[in-house]
Design a protein around this nucleic acid. Structure first.
Lengths: 143, 143
DNA sequence: GCGAAAATGATAATCGTTATCATATGGCCA
DNA sequence: TGGCCATATGATAACGATTATCATTTTCGC
């Protein structure tokens, strides 16, 4: 008889155990629209796990990033933000310099040109980060 | 009679006075190849201004960024780095994930596509940051 | 040279993040 | 099922880059 498949571990790296807090952290990120700071993730996770500490949130986020479940995004203010990874795939960010809102975007052609640029400099491409700054439609209208 | 033109102020914003320390900070950035951390700028500036404090370096760098003489670049480790701006114009960064070295690059076509991408989302473009991660030629060879 | 405004240095404060450590928990194995 | 031990956890101290504070010094138009 086939062993009953256990509930998926939120982080399945080598030597990592399942834990309800880490699940709660992942759930918080998945449930949100993304772009949560660690503190915001903490606030959300506490709804399911009232006693969860901020240190566990940081540890869990790092772990979840390591196994590709969550993507870390560091805006120019230096405060890391987290969002679900994988499902929605890679994307770049449009950041409004007036209101701070984010938008997501991908341009396949830019992606391709980046590979070319890397190759031209002898770089073996692993990833990239593209952030476009400007005024979002709403803020541009206000001015 | 025309007023004698004073020696150029390293920061010519409104209400800003010239100072030898700020000059030294600017010189340190200009003299280097760029990509200096604030601490490194401090070390360089001390060669000209032995008593200069780290606070003054930070203040000067912020001021010089404000008037466009110096460009701030924040790598993923979150530690700001500074380089001369203007003379060499905008460029993007290729960052080696193994040794941490930087290379600079510009692809006019990518620049153009970014404008298009911004326009498509109703953003009024102000600037952007593109960082490409990978292994530099030397590190790629080692592996 | 005078004096108000700006710049400075020393250092305390901030703040996001990480390390520490004693305790709790998870899950493999008998 | 219970024991065992590695991993996870929470509280909190530590960390490090950057910023704020404040008394003192410097700048520069007059």
């Amino acid at each position: 008889m086939a062993r009953k498949k256990p509930k998926a571990n939120s982080c399945d790296c080598q030597g990592v155990r399942r834990s309800r807090r880490r699940d709660a952290v992942l759930d918080a990120v998945l449930a949100s629209g993304g772009h949560l700071s660690a503190e915001e993730v903490h606030r959300e996770a506490k709804k399911k796990m009232p006693g969860i500490g901020i240190a566990t949130v940081y540890r869990s986020l790092k772990c979840l990033c390591g196994c590709g479940k969550v993507a870390e995004f560091i805006p120019p203010d230096g405060v890391a933000r987290y969002e679900a990874a994988g499902s929605r795939g890679h994307h770049d960010h449009l950041i409004c310099t007036a209101c701070g809102c984010f938008a997501e975007a991908v341009d396949p052609e830019i992606e391709r040109l980046q590979e070319r640029l890397a190759a031209r400099h002898g770089f073996k491409l692993e990833g990239h980060r593209l952030e476009i700054y400007g005024l979002c439609a709403r803020c541009a209208k206000k001015k």
